[in-house]
Amino acid sequence: MAEGELKYFIFLGCAIPYRVSAYEISTRKVMEKLGVKLEEMPEFNCCGLPMDPVSHEMMLLLAARNLCIAEEKNMSIMALCPGCAGTLNKVNTMLKNDKKLREEINEYLKVDGLEFKGIIEVKHLIQVLNDDVGLEKITAAVKKSLKGLKVAEHNGCHVLRPKEYMGFDDPEDPKVLKALIEATGAECLDYMDEAQCCGAPTAGINDKIPLQLSREKLTHIRDVGAQALITICPFCHMMFETNQMRIERMLNEKFGIPTLHYPQLLGLALGLSPEELALDELRVKPTEQLKQIGI
């Protein structure tokens, strides 16, 4: 790797290729603009998180296998989904620090010729943007300031919690995504219960609680006058965007809050077109917001 060159395996996870391609499209476009190289990860599998409630061991094995694949090329992982980033990062740390657990897992991995060595890192997209690319470089790359646009952010639990493993931001008062949003010129508003869960993980078990949780967050976001919501998680995005009209119908509300993946917002500021950033995939159209910023 040339000095100063940023290069990662992009970890797509399952939800993004399944139904949130706009997040992937806009991420690739933005990273290309910022000079970050992304390589496809061969034969990766589910990060492991969905299996943790069924079998902790299964989760560890799924995550460890992904880590081994990245280690073979000695390349760190950048995940787009906070669930994947959180899980892979947690297992990476656990296996690096706990010799007994590492030996146990390596014993299993051996049957497929794999071994965990502990030589790479796992980061979420916003960590790469904040820590490796840096706010300075991002600000310098802005071609079209989004000044005047007022938005709110929603991080998604697993980039923040448990703090013991993620730890790069304060889960009680997260600042990294806000700073990244403000680098585009847009204003990022504070609102009540900012770091609260969107409810998505319970969607397979209960059909009402997740919608009630998302409704509550959308209400708080509407109350402070945000013109758009910015997310960095495919599941949160499905709750706030894909399901927004369903929430409106079911719970008799009116929101009309366009919800963008952060790289879509950043992309607009970097001079990319709405088409390039797959903004047409949004159900709640940001027509007025785009007009306001002159796009």
Binding site: P53, C157, R161, P162, P171, Q196, T202, I205
Partner: peptide, 12 residues
């Protein structure tokens, strides 16, 4: 038991 969203707020 299965309603836990594993948001880890309780843990933190």
């Amino acid at each position: 038991l299965w309603l836990c969203a594993s948001c880890f707020t309780c843990t933190d």
